[in-house]
């Protein structure tokens, strides 16, 4: 387990260092994820131990996120002051985006099944 955690945390550290030293507008852990992905592709995939540790961490994302979510108690006023725009923008944009992504995927999928024809979104039911 120590080796697996070492690998993941070393990439976390490296990702953070790269982002800060280059002054990038990019999240450090995400940079670490891209580095780990590259490492996995080059090394031919994770060992069993790394798989187990990675899956355990990912399975607990919901728990690990709780403290960050709780910080919203300091911003109650901002949320209440903008409640109406938020209550409309979030569900409407979410439903629109699911529809757009789903239509785009099924349009390009049916494009594939009929050969190389370009199928536009409007041809979908």
């Amino acid at each position: 387990m120590a080796k697996a955690l070492f690998i993941i945390m070393a990439f976390q550290c490296l990702g953070g260092l790269i982002v800060t030293s280059l002054g990038l507008l990019f999240p450090g852990p995400l940079c670490g994820m891209l580095l780990l992905l590259t490492y996995l592709m080059l090394s031919g995939g994770p060992e069993k131990e790394l798989n187990t540790a990675g899956d355990a961490l990912v399975a607990h994302l919901g728990l690990l996120f709780v403290p960050a979510g709780v910080s919203v108690i300091s911003f109650g006023d901002e949320i209440i002051g903008n409640l109406l725009p938020l209550a409309i923008a979030i569900p409407v944009s979410t439903a629109l985006a699911v529809a757009a992504a789903g239509l785009a995927a099924s349009a390009s999928a049916s494009g594939r099944s009929v050969g190389r024809a370009v199928v536009e979104e409007s041809s979908q039911p």
């Binding site: 945390m9 990439f11 990702g15 852990p29 670490g32 994770p46």
Partner: peptide, 12 residues
């Protein structure tokens, strides 16, 4: 560990 778990997303 939240940051660690984000890095670990590369595995799945």
């Amino acid at each position: 560990l939240l940051g660690t778990a984000v890095v670990a997303l590369a595995i799945p």
